[in-house]
Write a protein that binds this DNA or RNA. Structure first.
Lengths: 353, 353
DNA sequence: AAACGCCATGCATACGTATTCAATGAATAT
DNA sequence: ATATTCATTGAATACGTATGCATGGCGTTT
């Protein structure tokens, strides 16, 4: 390559283009190769030379060109965070839980020296091609919600293409790839167990406990575990399906209390549902938690602002973000990666006292 | 360059490397140049040829290598979103308002065909070098909060380096660069005007109205405007400084009501402050809105979940995100860019009825 | 028929770096 | 003194694309 300085007569201060490694090399009296190595702290180059080169680079405010470096090394040092929205949500809003996750992923990536590319995605796109093959990113974090069955084959494709990716969500048996997820069943169990321990007897469940919502289904199963353990028989009349919406929660609790006697607690599959339920109960002048105690799931910011503040099961998004990033990088670096479940924490607030 | 196919005898199905534009060229019976042009939909290449090339590329699942393309064209088609956190906030949390903004910026960037790089930043870093010079991004969106004076000289540096950037926040006179911001003064004016129109007479203000918090100062000035217009004299006893925290709001209202008689409304510089104030008032058994009406600012998600739901001034983050992205791209493309103020919307909820 | 212009394409090159390979000198072993 | 290793460096090259320039063919004008 012809550097600016391989034409001997180019005058330095006339340069109008970007400073490159040849310029540094010239200033340092070494070759471009040495500059490249020195800046990456390679032990191949003598310590003194290394420091001299680094000093000059700093002085000239030189920064390695990412595109060139990436092209040459066939890597990107970038992670793509692909978000899939809950299709039922308002187009203009992002699920608050995702946002919290996004924050922690951003931090974790930065700590590991990776750039983070954020994008909303549709299911019909070819992520592997668009990101990895196109050399935009070395790997992907998939942050979806709910109905994983709709993209099971998508994951299969990714795995076959040897894509590097990590999924946030429940681990499904036979699902390709690696997941990091909250132990939803344990969370449901602990919430329900707490309600039982505080003396509640007739505990309802609101949420989508069908196969198409594995996360919610697991929370439901945890609820069942706790009841069984306490010797309380499961009453199917107290179990109501509901979408992950405030309004669905309100409708569900309305039906529950009008069709059943003596309900004294509710465990809901999400905070959104719980909030809807609380509002409806207050509307009906049923006291929360005195008459009916409520525990939600997720610990979205609004939970603590509710009146009464909503007890809930918190997913540790800090840890989740870290794990997602670390495991993805492991996978990119060719190491063996295992899926992992994160322990949830029950946050007791006024809604279940 | 030596393509795989310039060595005549390489057998196609033995290739193990990435498919490149030479491969497509070979398959299409054209040159690599034509492939490059065809894929970018250049009118220079005949329509039939173009479609043929595109079809083959699609069939072979070929994607242009972003690094190579970027290196050659000296561009990135990427925008960096740099977040500066409120230093008073818990390290693990992100300001919910930022998150909403992040969502809309992400969308807007995608619509314009730009990738989005997200990062938290410290003030002591050289963003221009790290992002633009390093060819990670073509420009930056700065999303800060509050104390802009601390980085005024930073902006000056950026401007001198001819960096491309757009700032979210108040327009300060003499400030370099372009800002998109909410018309904070108008928002404060409308909030206060609404309180007056509903018959409130003694209206307090809580928030940092010092020079170091220009956004809040402007909201305060709007409050003053409305009072003046209504012929109500400004009572400095009703104006209290407070940081942008729930606890500060609680402390402030406590002092206000214990030191003053007959306060019947409060306009706060942010929702967080308002929420703290409401909680404190309820704690003191002062009815909101019957005895004291409250209006906040920002419309964070929790505002609508409060009890009573909090009236507030909403900043249109959808529009803001779009404008930030559009203006930044304009600037990148060398066009003239003007700063712009966004009209806020008063959201009337139960807290000020 | 000659001259000209336009359309479509190909050739050659440069973007800026990381890395392989070879070369140098010094130090050590024989 | 010669052979061998080691430490350090430089020369050359490839990563995959976009684009300036040159070319060839064809239609239009004079």
């Amino acid at each position: 390559m012809l550097s600016s300085y391989s034409h001997a007569e180019v005058i330095p201060f006339m340069k109008d283009t970007r400073i490159n490694s040849f310029d540094i090399a010239h200033r340092a009296g070494v070759s471009q190769s040495t500059v490249s190595r020195a800046l990456r702290n390679s032990p191949l180059v003598n310590k003194e030379t290394r420091e001299k080169v680094q000093a000059i680079a700093r002085e000239l405010n030189y920064t390695v060109d990412k595109n060139a470096a990436n092209l040459r090394s066939q890597t990107t040092h970038t992670i793509a965070l692909l978000l899939f929205e809950d299709p039922t949500a308002d187009d203009s809003l992002i699920n608050p839980f995702f946002l919290s996750m996004l924050g922690s992923v951003t931090r974790a990536a930065a700590e590991r020296g990776y750039d983070l590319l954020v994008s909303f995605q549709q299911l019909d796109q070819d992520w592997h091609n668009e990101y990895e093959v196109a050399h935009r990113a070395d790997g992907m974090i998939l942050l979806g919600y709910g109905d994983y069955t709709t993209y099971a084959d998508k994951l299969q494709q990714l795995a076959e293409a040897k894509a590097h990716f990590v999924i946030w969500g429940p681990m499904m048996s036979g699902q390709p790839g690696h997941s990091i997820g909250c132990d939803n069943r344990l969370g449901g169990y602990e919430a329900c167990k707490h309600l039982i321990a505080s003396g509640r007897k007739r505990i309802a469940f609101i949420g989508d406990h069908s196969d198409s919502a594995p996360e919610f289904l697991l929370r439901y199963q945890g609820y069942c575990d706790a009841l069984r353990e306490a010797g309380i028989e499961l009453d199917n009349n107290l179990v109501t399906n509901a979408a992950n919406l405030e309004s669905a929660g309100a409708d569900a609790i309305k039906n529950l209390v009008s069709n059943n006697e003596g309900i004294d607690a509710v465990f809901t599959a999400s905070d959104l549902i719980a909030i809807g339920a609380i509002k409806e109960l207050q509307h009906q002048n049923i006291a929360v938690p005195e008459q009916i105690a409520i525990i939600g799931f997720d610990d979205i910011p609004a939970a603590s602002y509710m009146h009464p503040p909503l007890s809930t099961v918190r997913q540790d998004t800090q840890l989740a973000g870290k794990l997602l990033v670390h495991k993805l990088i492991q996978s990119i670096e060719g190491e063996q990666v295992d899926s992992e479940l994160i322990k949830p924490n029950l946050i007791v607030r006024a809604s279940c006292l």
